[in-house]
């Protein structure tokens, strides 16, 4: 069983804490979904977001601080160090953005920052693509978890490159993987878990739903279904119909 740096989660769902209509709605989304991990950004608050961070801490879940909005390894490393100090966790979701519009990760800066942070004792969750060469470099750097994207952040497109994600999953059987970014519907989350991914992380799909708490619950149910399906051994696809009851000898015309 793959875990997240020694932590197993009761539900494979991680929720972001941005873009909700209010902190009260965010709290309701966590309560109603029982999501056990919250990501929180340190970037935009200029070190003065204490009241909001306290609310996030008050959720009583595992905190996964992130380096959202960082465009260089150096920025990301500094933000990670601030996050560790403030939230008292070695977990860090490492984002090094390479492109301001697509929010695509910068693979070079990502590896550089991952090496530095792993060496410094962080437990790094890198936001990456489905690229296997990059994945190998991140694992070499010391990452025991990978967070490949489903689709660009906030796009809600679901799993854009099924083949790429499936090969990535197969290539690193011992590495825990979280599908991060791009999920729009609970069915996307179920699909990711059915494929053997270990969790999903999402924010916009819940925060911008008309009823975020109910949508968070819908994702929680989908995560349970997907994880249960993966554990139950999916039958796989066949090219021909296989009737469950033989038709020979039956009056089937």
């Amino acid at each position: 069983m793959r875990d997240f740096y020694g932590t197993t989660l009761p539900l494979p769902l991680m929720l972001g804490t941005a873009r909700y209509p209010s902190p009260a709605v965010m709290e309701a989304a966590f309560r109603q979904s029982a999501a056990p991990v919250a990501t929180v950004s340190l970037r935009r608050e200029q070190g003065a977001g204490q009241a909001f961070w306290d609310m996030v801490r008050g959720l009583g879940v595992h905190l996964l601080p992130n380096t959202a909005g960082c465009h260089s390894a150096r920025e990301a490393i500094t933000t990670a160090q601030m996050a560790r100090e403030y939230f008292g966790t070695n977990w860090i979701k490492l984002e090094v953005i390479g492109h301001a519009d697509t929010l695509q990760p910068d693979p070079f800066g990502l590896v550089e920052a991952a090496e530095a942070l792993c060496a410094d004792g962080f437990e790094v969750f890198p936001y990456t693509t489905e690229d296997q060469v990059l994945a190998a470099r991140l694992v070499d750097a010391g990452c025991r978890v990978l967070m490949p994207w489903g689709a660009p952040i906030g796009s809600g497109l679901g799993l854009n490159n099924l083949h790429g994600l499936r090969s990535l999953r197969a290539a690193f059987p011992d590495v825990a993987m979280v599908i991060d970014a791009g999920l729009g519907l609970p069915s996307h989350a179920a699909q990711a878990l059915e494929m053997g991914f270990d969790a999903v992380l999402l924010n916009t799909a819940v925060a911008e739903a008309r009823d975020p708490a109910a949508m968070a619950e819908a994702f929680a149910l989908a995560c349970r279904a997907g994880a249960l399906a993966a554990a139950s051994g999916p039958m796989g696809q066949r090219d021909m119909a296989v009737p469950s009851t033989p038709v020979i000898g039956k009056a089937w015309l």
């Binding site: 935009r44 608050e45 070190g47 003065a48």
Partner: peptide, 13 residues
Amino acid sequence: QIESASRAQMTAR
């Protein structure tokens, strides 16, 4: 609309 108690001047961003 930023979750912050900073009264500093507007940021460049």
